[in-house]
Computed example of a mutant assay.
Amino acid sequence: MRTLDLLHRWAGGIVGLVLALLGLSGTLLVYKDSWVMAPGAGDALVVDAGPVADAVARLFATPDRPDSIVFASEAFGLHRLRSPGGAGAYADQAGNIVATWDGIWARPELWLFDLHHYLLAGDAGEIFIGIISLVGLFFIISGFILWWKLRRTFQFKLWPARMSRPAIIRHHRDIGVVLAPLLFISCLTGAMLTLQPVANFILSPLGPAKEWRAATAPPKVKGGQLAGNPDWHAMLAAARERFPDAQFRVLSLPRKPGDLISLRLKQPAEWLPNGRTLVWFDPADFHVVEARSALEMPLGQRVFTKVYPLHAAKVGGLALKLLMTLSGLGMALLGTLAVWTFWFKQPKKVRVPA
């Protein structure tokens, strides 16, 4: 038990601030659609394929056309355009550009997202966050074990009774066990989203990972050369005919010769904000190459698509947002106080008279 206590304290003292940073940034991102400031952000969603196609044609007709468009949603009324090198723009649903940027530092929601998901360090940062998420799971499990032997002294307090080391440690222990279920969900889903082997292992009872991950892979079909004036009306109409109740979510141009135009849609029963219903088109003649419904994909893929909505509180309405807010703020509080007590509130050494 002493070894477990030492591991818990040392690990908390070293990575506590990283967990605090992730908790605080995650809490802000839960409400991102509410605080992003841009003209038209509060506009009602346009769902008819015709007006959406008109806007797409206008946006892709520009000389510096984007690589993809994330369509407006019920929560956020602007299209987001993505371009190489981190550049991008917001456009209203008529296709008018209302804000542009050359990199993530131009918009607070962009660098905050990058901070939370990648620690501003790209793929290496994402892997590091996944490892930190696993460390967070260790904190939760070891903390509960260490709390159990002292459970009779439990007292619920939102803040330490005093800013002394014993009071902070007691508060850390007791509030940690209260928040443990929420923190467990946050850390587990975070690890599943950032570390593929973790998701593969947890979902292994639902089928081979190779099989369910292949459900979202593009068809092994070589597309033609992208036409100069794509018929977006025909493509969006074809997608709407196949999935009448779905919302258009993400439209992407081919990245290299031979790739297809891809369209992601969200059906009402899907939790994932951008959906996993997929339609691919040939860039030369715009015919549908293949369409896949997210509701008919392998069970492993259907369960995996629920991980992000749980992690980011994109389902469950205000109730889950509030719970994930408690999780994020709790993680920030626990991480910060853990570092404070470890490095700055060490017990004073008592000198023994010679």
Rank of each mutant, 00 (worst) to 15 (best):
W148D: 01
E74N: 10
V98E: 00
F76T: 01
F113K: 13
K157S: 09
F156Q: 00
I69V: 01
F154Y: 01
G77D: 03
G95V: 01
G136E: 05
H171Y: 13
R170N: 15
V98I: 01
A161Q: 12
R173E: 09
S68K: 02
A121D: 09
W111H: 08
D114P: 09
R152V: 05
I140S: 03
G125T: 05
L78I: 03
F156I: 03
N96L: 05
L78M: 03
G88M: 06
T153P: 06
L110I: 15
G86L: 05
R82T: 15
Y118P: 06
F113A: 15
L150P: 00
I132D: 07
H79P: 07
F144I: 13
L150N: 09
H117K: 13
R151I: 02
L150Q: 14
A99S: 15
R80H: 14
G125A: 04
P166G: 10
P160N: 04
F156A: 02
W159K: 04
R173V: 09
L137E: 02
I69P: 00
A94M: 07
R151C: 01
Y118K: 11
I145R: 13
D92R: 00
F139G: 02
L150I: 02
G103S: 11
G86W: 03
A124N: 10
V98H: 04
S164W: 04
I69K: 00
Y90R: 06
L150H: 14
R170P: 13
D174M: 10
L81R: 07
E74P: 03
R162I: 07
R173Y: 08
A94N: 06
D92P: 02
G95T: 03
F139S: 02
G86R: 08
P108Y: 08
I145C: 04
A94Y: 05
P84F: 09
I140C: 01
F154A: 02
L81V: 04
I132C: 12
A124E: 11
I132N: 05
W101G: 02
A75S: 13
Y118I: 14
H116P: 13
S142R: 04
V70D: 06
S73N: 01
R162W: 12
R170D: 15
G88C: 09
F144E: 08
G86S: 06
F76H: 03
R173T: 12
V70W: 10
S68V: 03
A106L: 07
L120I: 09
N96D: 12
K149A: 05
A124I: 15
P166F: 12
A72D: 00
N96R: 10
I169L: 13
F113D: 13
M163T: 10
G95S: 01
L81G: 06
D114C: 07
W148P: 03
T100K: 10
A94K: 06
I129S: 12
A161K: 08
H171T: 11
Q155A: 11
R165P: 04
A161P: 02
G88W: 02
E109F: 14
F113Y: 14
S133A: 15
A87L: 12
V70F: 12
A87W: 11
L112Q: 10
I169Y: 14
G88D: 08
R82L: 15
H171Q: 11
W148Q: 06
W111E: 08
A121S: 15
R107D: 15
G136Y: 04
I168A: 08
L150A: 07
Y118H: 13
A106D: 15
R80A: 12
L78F: 00
A106S: 13
I97D: 04
F113R: 14
A94D: 09
